[in-house]
């Protein structure tokens, strides 16, 4: 993957802290993600990686520290939040497609109501992205009629229809049967090739090696190590990272 296209900072996390009651789940997280950069976040469960990326589009609120997305600070100000959510797309582990709407309606809902696009234009846009994720023929079906891998690809297309600057992925393949993981990863690799800024929480290390500029390892609420994929996988510095790698790479 080309490394010369990195631009200015897209997301800045500055000493971000979050507590769930007495539990300190994010501890002084500081991370900067540049435009067109692709970052994979990994770590054991409970490390706070999902919480961290959910803070970026305010699905979770941080209690201390600052988060800047595309130059705007993330606060309680609803105007700022609306702007940020328009530019940040998210793909969830459990897809979260809207079951009572067709695939096409799932994709056109936000462009029509948030970006105020005319319906015909929104549908054309949606079909472009559905073709890109390789399931244009399912446009009139309902989510319940699709397989898990197809649903997740629709979820990616739905997020792309808002033409965001950053795409966040929260364990996108963890809920899929093994034979469907490849089709979703292929879609994400193609997306990466087009220059999208991506932050991806995943256990798929092959994907990280192929696509990521940087891998960030989190454990127990803090960033322990980060660096190029080659460095992280072949030359882990800390014991915790060594332990984690031995656990997930066993049997591969």
């Amino acid at each position: 993957m080309s490394q010369t296209e990195i631009g200015k900072p897209a997301i800045i996390l500055d000493k971000v802290n979050k507590w769930y009651g007495p539990l300190h789940v994010l501890r002084d997280i500081s991370l900067t993600i540049m435009e067109k950069e692709r970052v994979v976040v990994c770590g054991p469960s409970g490390s706070g990686k999902s919480t961290m990326i959910r803070c970026i589009n305010r699905l979770e609120t941080h209690q201390a520290g600052h988060i800047y997305v595309d130059g705007t600070e993330l606060t309680d100000d609803t105007r700022a939040l609306d702007t940020i959510r328009r530019e940040v797309g998210m793909v969830f582990q459990s897809f979260n497609l809207f079951p009572h709407l067709t695939i096409l309606e799932n994709c056109t809902l936000a462009p029509i109501w948030v970006r105020k696009m005319p319906k015909v234009q929104a549908e054309e846009l949606a079909m472009t992205f559905l073709e890109r994720v390789k399931i244009p023929e399912q446009a009139k079906k309902y989510p319940g009629q699709l397989s898990g891998g197809q649903q997740q690809r629709v979820a990616i297309a739905r997020a792309l229809c808002m033409q965001p600057k950053v795409m966040l992925f929260d364990e996108p393949t963890s809920a899929l049967d093994p034979e469907m993981i490849k089709e979703v990863l292929d879609t994400m690799i193609e997306l990466a090739g087009s220059g999208m800024t991506m932050v991806c929480v995943t256990h798929e290390m092959g994907f990280a090696r192929q696509v990521a500029h940087r891998v960030v390892f989190m454990d127990r609420g803090e960033i322990v190590e980060s660096g190029e994929p080659k460095q992280i996988f072949e030359n882990p510095q800390t014991d915790r990272l060594k332990l984690f790698l031995s656990q997930i790479l066993r049997g591969h």
Binding site: Q3, I6, N17, W19, G21, P22, H24, R27, D28, Q63, A64, H213, R214, R220, E222, I223, V224, E225, S226, G227, E228, Q231, Q237, T238
Partner: peptide, 24 residues
């Protein structure tokens, strides 16, 4: 593109929460 690992890796890791949650 930075090739260094995070500074945190070289510091001893403290397992105590840093500061109490705001407003308990």
């Amino acid at each position: 593109m930075s090739m260094t690992t995070s500074v945190a890796a070289s510091m001893p890791v403290s397992s105590e929460p840093r500061g109490a949650p705001p407003g308990a």
